[in-house]
Write a protein that binds this DNA or RNA. Sequence first.
DNA 1: AAGATAACTGAGCATTTGCTCATTTAAAAA
DNA 2: TTTTTAAATGAGCAAATGCTCAGTTATCTT
Lengths: 196, 196
Amino acid sequence: MRYRDENKVLAIREAAIDMVASDGLENFGINRLAKAAGVSPATIYIYYKDKEDLLTSISIEEGVKMTRATLKGFDPNMSFKEGLWVQWQNRAAFSLDNHKSAEFFEQLRNSTYKDKMLETINDEFRKNMGNFVENAIERGEIERMPLEVYWSVAFAPLYSLIRFHNEGKSLGGRKFKFSEKIMKETFDCVLKGLTK
Amino acid sequence: MRYRDENKVLAIREAAIDMVASDGLENFGINRLAKAAGVSPATIYIYYKDKEDLLTSISIEEGVKMTRATLKGFDPNMSFKEGLWVQWQNRAAFSLDNHKSAEFFEQLRNSTYKDKMLETINDEFRKNMGNFVENAIERGEIERMPLEVYWSVAFAPLYSLIRFHNEGKSLGGRKFKFSEKIMKETFDCVLKGLTK
DNA sequence: AAGATAACTGAGCATTTGCTCATTTAAAAA
DNA sequence: TTTTTAAATGAGCAAATGCTCAGTTATCTT
């Protein structure tokens, strides 16, 4: 029998990410994807059940990739300051190196597909984050607070900065450029707010 | 001559917001909108040039509404703490009372339409925010920092919390419920990080 | 070499899409 | 009342959409 051409799978996935990232989820279509990936529309349906399956599958893959990258070198027993800083650096590096992936992910996160993609990724998050935060609380480094509050204070500012960087222009027409220095300053700000 | 039926304009706008909020921008279509608004497709084109014009126009209107609501009772000469708190309360109240609008806005903000809608709203933002932040810096209440960093630390956590609240489930399957108490705690956290 | 299997294809189907136009309706002006 | 103006309409067009199927191709086993 004939074997799957792995290049085709990769081409489909890469083209999908590119299309959503640059044209937006609302302009994403299977026929156009097939053309962009250099593949027949029918081929896509060998790998994915339908359009929704394609988008959710890819978003989960990318989400897992991103989560893995964010947790590289991270250990839930690290001090709060060190652990959070590792995650900030990893996440920023990943988003800048793979900004198409990051943009794709962000688009899906704000769409009707979010439920299916987030239930997988939140599990991954919860496992690693839960212990880390619990340790930090027990050590008296931070106050006890709902996980959602923690996430909102600890990570939302970073993701916002990354978005400002990736969008061409930002507040007031100027161009905003991310840098190690700015990230560190913002981190200090957030850390100060969180720690006792 | 015949006058415009203002109910039709309102019905179109409300139906558009509802549709995008509940079915997602990627499932928004003119024919379906016409049916939902109880109006002929052709009527929509009396009020809007095309689909893009409709979405950007409505998003700008809603954005202005939201900005106005957020700044109710706000004065750039307030103390930093008081001024920011007023904005947090206003914004949270608006988003919870008008969560369809908020959802609609959030969808457009993460789409290819973002450029056109944000250039108007960022102007409004910049005018009011610039002075306020500058005053706070001169009074020595906060450090000098890029506006993007300020925005990311001061507001991104709040918007994140609102999203957690509006999504059915959040981190780890549990349900997260926003409350005055949680908002105040999060605010204190953010304020502590920002102020000297 | 022949047969078996499954990846792969392009043409194209049914439906939906964004949008238009000939016509009708309502209300002001004559 | 008649004329004039523009709002409002529903049928429907060209194009695009998600998806399928009969047929072809590559690679395995025999």
